[in-house]
């Protein structure tokens, strides 16, 4: 049974230059204990999709559709009710730990804060739990480290602290937004390993632009482009048999896969192309692709693609 199910989700927000159509009619299911990778490039709307699940979007945003978590529509909850979900049921691990950690609070206290809020522990117990969490993310000498400030932590350590904070209240689901961005190769490897370990009994939506990282961690992968899901399959199938031309192009442009570029650039979410959103950059595009909009269809068992080649 799916823990989270998103149906017909549309997220748009107005700006001076026009309406940004960040999420366009997305359907997505995440099963209990599934780790789903959401892959996409800058400006494809993947972060907005993640944020809309716990409703961390500006008030001017218009959201349509349903996001059902354990059967309840999160979009219908009051502000007070959603706050109980955030952190406790669904936790978010944000990118850029440098700005996501408060520089004037000790790391341990920041984690304890979240624990106090949701679990009703007193200060001392919360702090003890925080140290325990730092140990869980393999920060050596956790008792001492808990009393240090973020600037005393290295980039990798901060990311570990962010993960500890996300896990602190033992949430059922985690949304991780580019937790490996900007990390060095060796540190990234460690963080990936850690993420993999700590989420074995969890449901996770793992948002990233890094296919290699997603491959390490995720069971299934879905590829997002211009506010839409272009492909969905298990991790092995995405790599062995990518169906959508965008997925193929994306894979081929990796340095390890030959560095063959996709022509052109991602469209603006304000001014989306007609027909298939990818047609201006697609080598296989024909007249139909320019005018008609393809649906996401199940091509093989549990392998979906949004392309007329398979229609």
């Amino acid at each position: 049974m799916s823990l989270l199910s998103i149906t017909q989700l549309k997220v748009h927000f107005p700006t001076q230059d026009g309406i940004v159509k960040a999420v366009n009619t997305i359907d997505l299911e995440i099963a209990n204990n599934e780790r789903l990778g959401l892959i996409g490039e800058t400006g494809c709307g993947k972060t907005v999709l993640g944020m809309s699940i716990i409703r961390l979007l500006p008030p001017s945003t218009t959201i349509e559709g349903e996001i059902r978590y354990k059967g309840n529509d999160l979009l219908k909850l009051t502000e007070k009710e959603i706050r109980k979900i955030r952190g406790k049921e669904i936790a978010m691990i944000l990118q850029n730990p440098t700005t996501s950690l408060n520089p004037v609070l000790k790391v341990g206290d920041q984690i304890a804060e979240a624990i106090k809020l949701h679990q009703g522990l007193d200060r001392r117990a919360a702090k003890a739990k925080a140290v325990e969490m730092l140990e869980a993310v393999k920060i050596p000498d956790a008792t001492k480290r808990a009393n240090e400030y973020p600037h005393q932590f290295s980039g990798g350590m901060k990311e570990r602290a962010m993960i500890a904070m996300g896990l602190a209240c033992d949430p059922a689901m985690i949304i991780a937004d580019e937790p490996t961005k900007g990390l060095d190769v060796t540190v990234k490897k460690q963080i990936v390993k850690l993420m993999k370990e700590v989420t074995t009994q969890k449901t996770m939506l793992f948002i990233t632009h890094d296919l290699g990282v997603a491959a390490e961690i995720c069971d299934n992968i879905t590829v997002m482009y211009a506010g839409e899901l272009m492909e969905y399959a298990n991790t092995e199938a995405i790599f062995k048999n990518p169906m959508h031309p965008y997925t193929q192009g994306f894979l081929n442009s990796l340095p390890s896969m030959g560095l063959k570029a996709i022509k052109g650039m991602s469209p603006s979410l304000i001014d989306l192309p007609s027909g298939c959103r990818f047609h201006p950059r697609c080598d296989f595009a024909d007249a139909k692709c320019r005018t008609e909009h393809p649906e996401l269809i199940e091509v093989e068992k549990s392998h979906y693609a949004r392309c007329f080649q398979y229609a």
């Binding site: 001076q16 230059d17 800058t42 603006s268 979410l269």
Partner: peptide, 15 residues
């Protein structure tokens, strides 16, 4: 994400 507008001045005036 980048957006197109004619110039910074216009957005300044609008603001």
């Amino acid at each position: 994400m980048k957006q197109r507008s004619d110039s910074r001045f216009i957005s300044f005036v609008a603001q």
